[in-house]
Design a protein around this nucleic acid. Structure first.
Lengths: 231, 231
DNA sequence: CCCTGTGAACGTGTTCACAGCC
DNA sequence: GGCTGTGAACACGTTCACAGGG
């Protein structure tokens, strides 16, 4: 045991509990540093890496320092080492298997996303409940019946949920029973899932509505005088 | 640099400055309360609305209190009034116009998303640079040449970017020059845009990598005694 | 008595500034 | 001199608990 521990640092140091905010930035750093490594550059400073990742250099250093010492003072971070540290820390050294539920337009489009393998993920299966779709091929994978998820021969770690809101809760229940550990939910509905399963929401309309708020903000004042509402 | 632009101090309009965290939850409340209103229920308590939105009741009350008084003590919130307050606050009372850039599989799938109008958004145009795609029809909209965005007759408030990472920066520049106020970027690359434009990132692989981290976390038993390492 | 609205306490995340090592 | 790593200061977000109107 303790693979996870040794993963983070060479000297058997601690795995402090790393806040989710930090975790959510690591994939960005990973992607940036991989891009830089691909150009042949051997090292990069926190300043430069932060700028290209859209964060401040101090937060980048704080974040990376939580994975154990990974940079060298006076030099910067080794691109290769850092990429490898990040991959290991995120658990991507062995590819995580992903299934897509929903073989409609969105599911098909996401399945086509070329970057799975390159980013430590392996698309293992696509499920649907629609008999007309089952058996058709998307990319290289045939669409399987969702009921087969429960007895699927390979472990499925993560699910991308690309079904209508009405179908999402039932599909989530099936995924949870099959032992899936995380769901990325594109359906515009809050899923309540057991604690064993982690759900992240991606809602096109909600994201656009937030942007709409800010777009309205500086072009036209709304609600004049709403300040005064106090009681 | 840090995309943390302060959206408060713009154009002289000083409104009580509502934190982004709060703004990002409002669309969820809106959707939940609309669903409840559709069942005919007239009022709802903070407790119930919070549970169905996946937040705590105290945070819901704090959030809503920032939009002015919207509930009634002893009773709860009027579903209709609250929905209307939220829509107005988010600037959705007049539909915000959205364009999609990228008429590939993802762009087409997103264009098909039925909920635009219902959620205060109006899909106005779809752009691409590929001549083979220009002129084809997606849903009810023809695909237009991206160069036309600059002189598009209708105002375009928001853009959904559904192009490969390599094409995203150039497309973002065109959008920025056309006066677009917000970009929802599905391309897996950090866009740096002028301050006048707000960029939100949706990255399939990054989201899955975060889920991968947590899935690895508790499937492996935690190191016994790891508590003690905390300092 | 019910349920919102809110100050005050608490906890978490970010920035600052510099010590420490290259 | 350059750049990381990190405590300490600061800012922000959440929860608590209760005052106060219905």
């Amino acid at each position: 045991m303790g693979e996870i521990l040794s993963a983070n640092s060479i000297e058997g140091v601690v795995r402090k509990d790393v806040p989710e905010r930090v975790i959510s930035r690591l994939p960005i750093y990973l992607q940036t540093v991989e891009t830089i490594a691909a150009t042949g550059q051997a090292t990069i400073s926190s300043e430069a890496l932060a700028a290209r990742s859209g964060v401040s250099s101090s937060i980048l250093r704080k974040d990376l320092s939580q994975l154990g010492r990974s940079g060298r003072r006076g030099v910067g971070y080794s691109c290769e080492d850092l990429a490898s540290t990040l991959r290991t820390f995120l658990g991507l050294d062995r590819a995580r298997s992903v299934a897509i539920i929903g073989a409609g337009r969105l599911g098909s489009a996401l399945a086509d996303y070329a970057g799975f393998k390159r980013r430590g993920l392996s698309l293992t299966a696509i499920f649907d409940t629609d008999e007309a779709k089952i058996g058709t091929v998307i990319g290289t994978l045939p669409v399987s019946d969702l009921t087969e998820l429960a007895t699927w021969p390979e472990d499925i770690d993560l699910v991308v949920m690309a079904v209508p809101a009405s179908a999402a809760p039932a599909a989530a229940r099936i995924a949870a029973e099959a032992g899936v550990r995380g769901i990325l939910n594109f359906a515009p509905t809050v899923l309540d899932a057991p604690d064993s399963i982690r759900v992240h929401q991606v809602d096109l309309a909600s994201e656009l509505q937030v942007l709409a708020y800010y777009s309205a903000l500086d072009s036209a004042p709304l609600n004049p005088g709403f300040e005064e509402h106090r009681n």
